[in-house]
Simulated scan of single mutants.
Amino acid sequence: MSSGPADAHKKYLRTKEAAPVVGLCARTLEKHRTYGTGPKYRKVGGRVLYDIDDLHAWIELGARTSTSDTDATYLPPAKPHAARAPAYAGKPR
């Protein structure tokens, strides 16, 4: 059995590869990145890379034991108002 680069487990994924890991489409993951509500990522040259461990950690932030779980972290949707709400609360547009 070979342990070359082709057989090695990928540590970093591009957006299209990372999206299925977190159960989202690539465009939604891009929106999360734009609004600052998604998992950590790295920019290498012009490429966006996600560490597989960061993807799993982001998923775990949303873990719940029941619908009334108050100890869980809130993961906002990929919407502009979700990311800007605290900074722009009460300010007119």
Rank of each mutant, 00 (worst) to 15 (best):
D7A: 03
P76T: 04
A8H: 05
P77V: 12
G62V: 01
K11Q: 12
T28R: 02
T65A: 09
A89M: 05
P92S: 02
P86L: 04
Y74N: 14
S66Q: 08
V21N: 04
K43Y: 06
R27H: 13
Y12D: 11
P77Q: 15
L13P: 07
V22N: 06
E17G: 03
G36P: 04
H32R: 01
P76F: 05
P5A: 06
D7K: 00
S68H: 13
E60R: 09
L24W: 02
G4A: 03
T70R: 14
R14S: 08
S66T: 14
R64T: 15
A19R: 08
R84N: 05
P39S: 08
L24E: 07
Y50D: 07
R42G: 12
E30A: 11
S2C: 00
K31Q: 07
G90N: 07
R64F: 08
V21P: 03
D54L: 11
K10P: 10
L29K: 13
H32G: 06
L29N: 13
P76M: 03
G46T: 02
A63G: 10
I52K: 02
L61C: 10
K43Q: 11
H56L: 15
L55V: 04
T70H: 09
G38C: 02
R47C: 10
Y74V: 14
Y74W: 12
D53H: 12
E60Y: 00
A6Y: 04
S68V: 13
G46L: 00
M1F: 10
K16N: 14
Y12A: 10
Y35V: 14
R47F: 13
P39F: 02
T37P: 04
V48A: 03
S68P: 06
K79N: 07
L61Y: 08
A85T: 06
V48H: 02
D53E: 10
L13S: 07
A83G: 12
V48I: 12
D69E: 08
Y74P: 15
R33P: 04
H56S: 14
R27P: 06
T67Q: 14
E60H: 02
R47I: 09
Y12R: 09
R14I: 06
A85I: 05
E30C: 11
T70Y: 05
A8P: 00
A19H: 06
A85L: 09
R64M: 13
A78R: 05
T73N: 14
L55K: 09
G46P: 06
K40Y: 03
K31S: 11
Y35G: 11
H56I: 11
L55H: 08
T28H: 04
A89D: 01
H32T: 01
A26P: 05
V44I: 12
R84C: 01
H32E: 03
T67E: 15
G36Q: 04
A87Q: 14
A8D: 13
P80H: 15
Y35A: 09
K16F: 03
Y35Q: 10
G23L: 08
D51L: 14
K40N: 05
Y12W: 15
P92R: 00
G4H: 06
T37D: 01
R42F: 14
V44N: 09
A63D: 15
G36R: 07
D71W: 01
Y41N: 13
L24N: 02
R33D: 08
